[in-house]
Simulated scan of single mutants.
Amino acid sequence: MRRFGMVARTAPERREEYLALHRAVWPGVEATITACGIRNFTIFVTGDVLFGYYEYIGDDYAADQRRMAADPVTQEWWARTGPCQRPFDESSGAANWVELDEAWHLD
């Protein structure tokens, strides 16, 4: 199992839209996430900062990410949620979410 942490920000004018979407995540999006080996996916929020955490239990992360990106329902979800997000650090060049390096873990 591999753990992932990531950060982004909400666009201030679209924060409530982003949160509303996540209060009712589409079942097809959740099914694809699960089918692609992701478990325990959680998004935390404080102010405009988003922190995401998930665990990957599959064997080929890159292939599973491509499969998720090819899913039409997920593409539509990203089209709705993407404009609500911005990079944690505007100078990073990231589209939105920035993956974090794991510094410590207590098992």
Rank of each mutant, 00 (worst) to 15 (best):
D48N: 11
R3P: 08
R15A: 09
A8H: 01
A62H: 14
G52H: 05
D60G: 05
V73I: 11
D64S: 03
A8R: 01
V49G: 00
R86M: 06
R80A: 14
R67T: 02
P87Y: 02
V73F: 08
R15H: 03
T81H: 02
E55R: 05
A35L: 05
A35E: 02
W77F: 13
A8G: 02
P72F: 09
C36W: 03
M68T: 08
A79G: 12
W78H: 15
I38G: 00
R66V: 10
A8E: 04
V49T: 10
A11W: 07
P12D: 07
C84S: 04
T10G: 11
T46E: 15
A20K: 09
R67E: 02
T34W: 11
E13V: 03
G5E: 11
E30T: 11
G47A: 02
A62F: 11
P83E: 02
D59C: 11
L19E: 12
V45N: 14
D60H: 12
L21S: 04
M68D: 09
A11M: 12
E30M: 11
L19P: 04
E16G: 06
E16H: 08
R23M: 12
I57R: 14
Y53E: 15
T34N: 10
Q85V: 05
I57Q: 13
P72C: 04
C84E: 00
W77L: 12
I33N: 04
L19Q: 10
G28S: 11
M6S: 10
W26P: 00
A79N: 13
P12N: 11
R9W: 07
D59E: 15
D48P: 03
I33G: 08
D71E: 08
A35Y: 02
M6N: 10
G52Q: 07
T74V: 15
E16M: 13
A63H: 10
G52E: 05
P87V: 00
L19I: 13
D64E: 08
A62G: 11
P12Q: 03
R67D: 02
R15D: 09
Q85A: 06
P12M: 04
V25L: 03
H22R: 10
R9G: 05
G82P: 00
L50V: 01
P83F: 06
A63G: 01
V73H: 14
A69N: 08
P83M: 03
F51I: 14
A11N: 09
M68L: 11
Q65H: 13
W77G: 04
M68R: 15
A35D: 07
L19K: 11
W26R: 01
A31K: 14
G5Y: 12
G47M: 01
G58A: 06
A24L: 04
E55N: 03
W78R: 13
R3I: 08
A62L: 13
